[in-house]
């Protein structure tokens, strides 16, 4: 069972502002969903390697060459707010 307090904590970690109705709904729905996940605990996975990725992945190296890159105005083209060639955000401190 997921309590409202846990939902609030997870919402904070997720940077989501939820209202009361959403907190109640997600507490109920996440509890139901996680209940069905409990079946996984029955499986013996001792010695099984976790599979984060299906392909054999190797680090990809490349020469440190300058390639094509965006101009400043292209980078800022979708910025909600900008100032002096930078992304602008509300005051932090």
């Amino acid at each position: 069972m997921i309590s409202k307090e846990v939902v609030e904590k997870v919402a904070k970690l997720s940077r989501l502002n939820l209202d009361e109705a959403e907190i109640a709904l997600y507490a109920e729905q996440l509890s139901q969903i996680l209940d069905t996940m409990e079946g996984l605990q029955q499986i013996d996975t001792d010695g099984v390697v976790p599979l984060a990725h299906v392909l054999p992945i190797e680090n990809v190296f490349r020469e440190d060459d300058v390639g094509q890159c965006f101009r400043q105005e292209e980078v800022l083209a979708n910025a909600p707010e900008q100032s002096d060639g930078m992304f602008q955000v509300p005051k932090i401190v």
Binding site: M37, L40, Q41, I43, T45, V48, V49, P50, L51, A52, V54
Partner: peptide, 10 residues
């Protein structure tokens, strides 16, 4: 746990 089960499925 889910990643380990993923390996079993593979």
């Amino acid at each position: 746990k889910a990643l380990k089960v993923r390996n079993l499925i593979k």
